[in-house]
């Protein structure tokens, strides 16, 4: 069984972030990075399925040269090889143009299963995985909390719903699953794994290599443009409305209408 796991490199969880001078991005200079959290869980889930039924996990990452660190980590954790979509033409995109690039690479691999994290910790669109499934024309399921061993070309998975509810569903393969954080404890890369990763294949590919039109991916293919990135401003203003609930509510409505003019 061949499993492709899509991973993204993001700033580390407790990194101190600064807005870059263009006002539209995060200044990544000197910022420590990691594999996006839910992608780490997707990788763990993929490795577990591959270990159970046999087969290989291929890590697929879209990002600049610096993202090689995330790829090395994935290889050290147990991915058999990696594809690095690394080209200026892939940069500056949105979820949809990223999904187009990933879909092209996935088509070349024709795996049985594609796993992605539920969402990225930086942009947080939660869309790349589902757009990818749509582009491939494959069944998909989101928020996966458990995966059963695939059988007869089908896979049974548990989805997380609202308010503590779950749902078991079965999908025909190939399929795309977006994995929820916490599905299984993520393994550490062992020292043997880290040293063995050096010998594994890391293939760098551009738009032409995966057979995708350059106008469809990266900045050229994006549908969403980020206008401004800023840190919410802190102000010292706060006012406590006096009186019982009814009085306070009436006062609040009055202010929202007359002062804030939002009602």
């Amino acid at each position: 069984m061949k499993i492709v796991v899509c991973i993204k490199q993001v700033p580390e969880r407790d990194a101190r972030l600064r807005i870059a001078s263009d006002g539209k991005s995060v200044d990544t200079a000197g910022v420590a990075t990691e594999i996006n959290e839910s992608d780490q869980y997707a990788l763990e889930a993929g490795l577990r399925v591959a270990e159970k039924v046999g087969g290989e996990v291929v890590a697929l990452l879209l990002g600049p040269d610096a993202a090689e660190e995330a790829i090395r980590r994935a290889l050290a954790m147990g991915a058999a090889r990696a594809i690095h979509l690394n080209d200026a033409g892939f940069q500056g995109g949105d979820a949809s143009s990223a999904a187009k690039a990933l879909a092209a690479a996935v088509r070349q691999e024709s795996p049985d299963l594609v796993l992605t994290g539920l969402q990225s910790d930086d942009a947080g669109w939660s869309q790349t995985g589902v757009i990818l499934a749509q582009l491939l024309g494959w069944p998909s399921a989101t928020l996966i909390m458990e995966i059963e061993q695939p059988e007869d070309g089908r896979i049974k998975v548990k989805r997380e719903l609202e308010a503590g509810w779950f749902q078991w569903i079965t999908l025909p393969l190939p399929a795309v699953l977006t994995i929820q954080s916490g599905i299984y404890p993520v393994r550490y890369a062992t020292l043997k794994g880290i040293m063995g990763a050096k010998k594994k294949e890391m293939k760098k590919m551009g738009p032409a290599d995966v057979g995708v039109d350059g106008g469809q991916v990266g900045a050229a293919g994006r549908k969403v443009e980020l206008k401004r990135l800023y840190v919410p401003e802190k102000t010292a203003e706060a006012e406590i409305l006096e009186g019982d609930a009814a009085t306070a509510a009436a006062s609040l409505v009055d202010r929202l209408q007359k002062e804030a003019k939002v009602l």
Binding site: R73, Y188, A189, L191, M195
Partner: peptide, 8 residues
């Protein structure tokens, strides 16, 4: 390799 080992 050293950076990865430190990370683990």
């Amino acid at each position: 390799v050293q950076r990865e080992i430190v990370r683990t």
